[in-house]
Amino acid sequence: MLVRMTTNADEPQTRPRRRAPAGAAVLREDVTEAIRAAVFEELAAVGYARMSIEGIARRAGVGKTAVYRRWRSKLHLVLDVVSALAVQGLPAPDTGALESDLRLLYEVTSRALRHPVASQILPDLQAEAARNPEIAEAVQKALRDGQEGVASKIIVAAERRGEVRVGLDDELALDLISGPLYWRSVVIRSPKLPKGYLDALARATAAAIKAL
């Protein structure tokens, strides 16, 4: 008689179960990454409200237990994935001038915000943030910390070069750097940036920061 064995190791649904080492559950990193990727895809496809652990597991090609071993609920899963964006950050430009640093930052940010997945996820999470303080905190941290780290390096470099006043209002500078592009790409969801928009934005922002 065949006896079906159970295991604590994560295995995709299509693979046979194997005996796991004794002790704590083995959490495979490739399975964890597959689940995280599935979260973004599922958020873009159905939104947070309709998203389910079952749908995430199916998209990742794993069993629901693999998800629940890592996160105890859909909310905690999304909070973890969104919060992880804050520590990834964007590369800090180092072109030797404030305006060209801003232009490069806007180019990278624009592509990220206009990515099909990001353009679907961000508005949905912002809507959920209005109803859920935990999601609001995670979204704010992911968006603000990611931009703030890069923007502060740009400002510090500009101060070091003597392009801007030392000790200027960092919060206001961050708003000037991040606000316009986010407004156009995420809030009003402009389908296409006008020709020369990023050049003009970098020039205007640099001038505004120098005037602080």
Results as ranks from 00 to 15, higher is better:
V62H: 12
L85E: 04
V46C: 09
S100M: 08
L98H: 14
E99T: 10
A66T: 05
E99C: 08
V117W: 10
A44M: 05
T109D: 13
S83K: 03
P133F: 03
Y106I: 09
A57S: 08
E128F: 01
I121H: 04
G55S: 06
T65E: 10
S110C: 10
Y48V: 08
V166H: 12
G149C: 02
A66K: 02
G162F: 13
G96W: 15
R144H: 09
G89V: 07
G162Q: 15
A138W: 06
I154K: 02
I155N: 00
Q140E: 13
G162D: 14
A45V: 01
Q88R: 04
P93D: 10
I154V: 15
R103I: 06
E134W: 08
R58F: 01
T95K: 12
D124M: 05
Q126N: 07
L102D: 08
A44W: 03
R165P: 15
V81H: 02
A44E: 07
Q88G: 05
L85T: 01
R131Q: 11
V67F: 02
H115Y: 08
A57W: 02
P91H: 05
G61C: 11
G167Q: 12
A136E: 13
I155Q: 00
I121V: 15
Q120K: 13
L122Q: 01
A57R: 04
E159T: 09
D101E: 11
T65L: 07
V78A: 11
H76N: 11
V81Y: 01
V166K: 13
G63C: 09
A84Q: 15
L105Q: 06
A86S: 13
R160K: 04
I154L: 07
A57E: 06
V156G: 06
G149V: 06
R160A: 03
A136P: 08
I155C: 00
V46L: 04
V166S: 14
A66L: 02
A84K: 15
E159C: 09
K153I: 03
L104W: 10
L79I: 01
I154Q: 02
A158W: 06
E41F: 02
